[in-house]
Amino acid sequence: MYSRNHVSVQSEVFDLNQETQALTQGRSDLGALVTFTGYVRDFNERPDVQALTLEHYPGMTEQALKAILQEAEQRWALKGTRIIHRIGRMEPSDPIVLVATSSAHRQDAFDACNFIMDYLKTRAPFWKKEHTLTGDYWVSARTSDSQAAERWLPRAEAY
């Protein structure tokens, strides 16, 4: 099943249709496809975000995303998963991240997609720097993101 999975860290924009087709084409055993797309907002810690730059740790990022995908595979009955994360400079309304999960029954795809995003936000080495009219700043990690990730932990697990 691993060949149906795909992880990519890229500066190019992705095409949602193309990515979902890659999962669904020639398949009649899929009962559900869930996709999540994250976009650049024009407001965050400051109200006038003009652009952001996404930095990552080359090599480790890909490994971290693969590890998250594999953990999702172990927890849910998935038929194919794609994770695409963009890097570099992006502007409001640009898509940043795509997670697409497919399964026979909807709950697996829903939960796995949610889980992958929660883990991606807290474990994959990406950092956002936002550019605003009043200057640039590095985005701080949110407690709500770590809490979201913690709900998937079967027991206390800390780095």
């Binding site: 740790y57 994360h85 940043i96 991606l120 936000k121 807290t122 990406f126 950092w127 590095w138 990690a141």
Partner: peptide, 10 residues
């Protein structure tokens, strides 16, 4: 070895 701040992707 790498040191870095908490991650903020997604």
């Amino acid at each position: 070895v790498a040191f870095f701040p908490p991650v903020t992707g997604g």
